[in-house]
């Protein structure tokens, strides 16, 4: 077997892949959030729709988006294989277990599965429709663009979708609360000077990012109701 394949199919190698792709996805969350915040601009969706047009047509963004999908798949596949190994390593369970670890750290697979369910719904509702589905058209400064803002606006006028979205952000928050700092440990970064900083940033990241995402549908729903 090729040394590269061998390295990244070992337990540590697989973990390194999960950690690296996980950190990339953290970066993606930030960029995606910056785009989403334009939904709150209160300009009838003008800035958001122009941004959406750029994101779906720019060749650079298209390339990064393929990489992003590949990383999501790698993250899921390697995690699933590791979870399978981990379950197999303890065929007989203990009668009593008292844990000295955080709940999130023990339930990353469960949290990740919920995030995946959210992701499928999210991609089907917005990404797929924007790329391949029927979209309303709006004219901005004489240019006809797909009105993604309207699609999002309609989705977030549905209380069920808003609640599901907010709960999903909660799951992402717990997933990140362990995943962010854990990724650095897996990549071998542990140092008296930097580890406390990584942990603090990890906690802040896992609270601020999902919270900022969750605020968007809530604000849009409330604006719609009023």
């Amino acid at each position: 077997m090729n040394w590269f394949i061998k390295a990244f199919t070992s337990t540590i190698g697989r973990k390194i892949v999960v950690a690296f792709t996980g950190l990339f996805l953290c970066l993606f969350l930030v960029v995606h959030l910056l785009g989403n915040l334009q939904l709150l601009a209160n300009d009838g969706g003008k800035s958001f729709n122009l941004y959406a047009k750029f994101m779906t047509t720019s060749p650079i963004i298209q390339t990064i988006s393929i990489l992003n999908f590949a990383f999501i798949l790698l993250h899921i596949i390697q995690s699933l294989i590791l979870t399978f190994y981990n379950r197999r390593a303890r065929p007989v369970r203990y009668a009593i277990v008292e844990n000295k670890s955080t709940w999130a750290s023990r339930n990353m697979a469960f949290l990740g599965t919920f995030v995946l369910i959210f992701l499928v719904g999210h991609l089907a509702g917005f990404w797929w429709r924007m790329k391949f589905g029927e979209m309303p058209i709006v004219g901005i400064d004489g240019v006809q663009v797909k009105d993604l803002y309207r699609v999002v606006y309609e989705a977030f006028s549905n209380l069920g979708i808003v609640v599901f979205y907010v709960i999903s952000m909660g799951f992402i928050a717990f997933h990140l609360s362990h995943g962010f700092q854990s990724a650095f440990q897996t990549l071998g970064i542990h140092h008296v000077k930097y580890t406390p900083l990584i942990q603090t940033v990890g906690w802040l990241f896992s609270i601020i990012i999902p919270l900022a995402y969750a605020i968007i549908p809530i604000v849009m729903y409330l604006r719609n109701v009023n």
Partner: peptide
Amino acid sequence: VAQMDAEGFGACTNTG
């Protein structure tokens, strides 16, 4: 590490 994997131990999830 190769031996550790061959023995069938699970992977680390950094639970501590």
